[in-house]
Design a protein around this nucleic acid. Structure first.
Lengths: 243, 243
DNA sequence: CGCGGGGTTGAGGTCAATCAATCAATGTGG
DNA sequence: CCACATTGATTGATTGACCTCAACCCCGCG
């Protein structure tokens, strides 16, 4: 799918833009590029002149502590604009890296700023996108701060699957999520070893099934319960997305 | 200080608004109200018609897990607009509560929306405010996910003191932060007991000194080092604020 | 003077980290 | 085609950071 089409669908999922505005969006110049897994797209400390929309793949915003430990602070899926905050915060406070092979569309800040000045509705839609990102960060603080390993991993799987479902990336209850257990650990603040054991527990309890990169949800209601997952914080406009 | 004055100072700290816009801001009707400590201002699930600026005191955004554990996901100080995201996300995904006695100024979403439609610069400034909040959430994910108890608490003290300093709430290296150790624990994902022991460690190492509600920084550079604290994520426009 | 909230202390328990192998899958050069 | 390297998953043993439970203390307050 064309990058601008992905962008428009995303904004339509989270706001109610109408035709004149959509036409403006279609006109945004987007420069598409492909990346392999584990490539840095924007680095902490950078002063980027572009933001990017994720066309396909999985991207993480990551931070490193002084002693080199890595924390992924959020995942981003198709349609998301992970570093849109760069539009108003000149220096990056985190790094964005691909977690799987990805296609990415770069948009000049110039263009985006001009559009936001002229079209308050579009500005509001972009703003809303960053607010949903913030809501996800809030949930992650809670997830990492107050839930045990089992619940924590179940929760993050629920979130990922729910979001992939919302963008049509789930076929027949199967999510294609080729991320390593190490990356999962960095997302939930656990060691690789413990992630491995917890995933086994999830499998033994009949909640998920994995084969290679694919994760199949065996029992969504139970996974939701196990993960203490309530999708309110994702602020989806659609009626309940059920997996 | 008048609520609108507090609001204007905040926006001036984070953006470069000029006079015509400032006049508009001065015209926002703000309804001021006082609260004691530990009062809920907005509840998760609410559909608020107002946002509020914190005129004085300390507010936390908090979430509760299914089994009732509490996580504070961010602190807010004078000038901050903690629930500004309510302007674009109709249903609240977290609760805002006072952590100390506070004065709060409520602003109608109607008015704010009208202003944002008419004045793109003001809209951008508000947007930027929410983006800085998001940057803080990101840092908290990292703090809770990847730092040990000692570093974690040192870090959060650094953040709090830095932010209080930026709004002129620090006199002579002394921060007046009358929050309980239980609240601190909820902010960093630790038990009250462990917070207590860690604070003792910070005192014994000569980093801080406490008497009642007051916290005095004994050695700011060492506290910064101990807390692995780098204020970039706070996106302060001023040159280095040194405590 | 008794009460309650918050701070402090000690003991014991547990969850998850660390260390160190092993294994499976894939790729690579000779 | 095979020896070898690499990456990620898995396993076991041990350690340790932090939690829980249960007191006790201190101080302001009705």
């Amino acid at each position: 799918m064309a990058p601008s089409e992905v962008l428009i669908r995303k904004l339509q999922r989270i706001s109610s833009l109408r035709e004149p505005d959509l036409a403006v969006l279609r006109g945004i110049p987007i420069h598409e590029k492909e990346f392999q897994a584990n490539q840095d797209l924007v680095l902490e400390g950078d002063r980027p002149s572009h933001s990017f929309v994720l066309v396909d793949g999985l991207v993480g915003s990551t931070k490193y502590t002084g002693d080199g430990k890595r924390q992924i602070t959020s995942f981003f899926v198709t349609g998301d604009i992970p570093d849109l905050h760069g539009l108003h915060l000149p220096v990056m406070d985190c790094t964005f890296s691909t977690l799987t092979p990805s296609r990415v569309g770069f948009m000049r800040h110039d263009s985006l700023r001009a559009i936001c000045d002229q079209h308050p509705r579009i500005a509001a839609a972009f703003w809303r996108s960053t607010l949903i990102d913030a809501a996800i960060y809030r949930e992650w603080v809670t997830n990492v701060g107050r839930r045990d390993a089992f619940t924590r991993i179940a929760h993050i799987l629920c979130e990922l699957i729910y979001r992939l479902r919302a963008v049509g990336r789930i076929d027949d209850h199967i999510a294609d999520i080729p991320i390593t257990q190490a990356a999962l650990g960095d997302a939930v603040g656990l060691s690789t070893v413990h992630v491995n054991r917890t995933l086994q527990e999830l499998r033994h309890k009949g909640l998920i099934e994995t084969s290679g990169a694919q994760t199949r949800v065996q029992n969504w209601p139970n996974l939701v319960r196990a993960g203490d997952f309530n999708p309110t914080y994702l602020h989806n406009r659609d009626p309940e997305v059920v997996v």
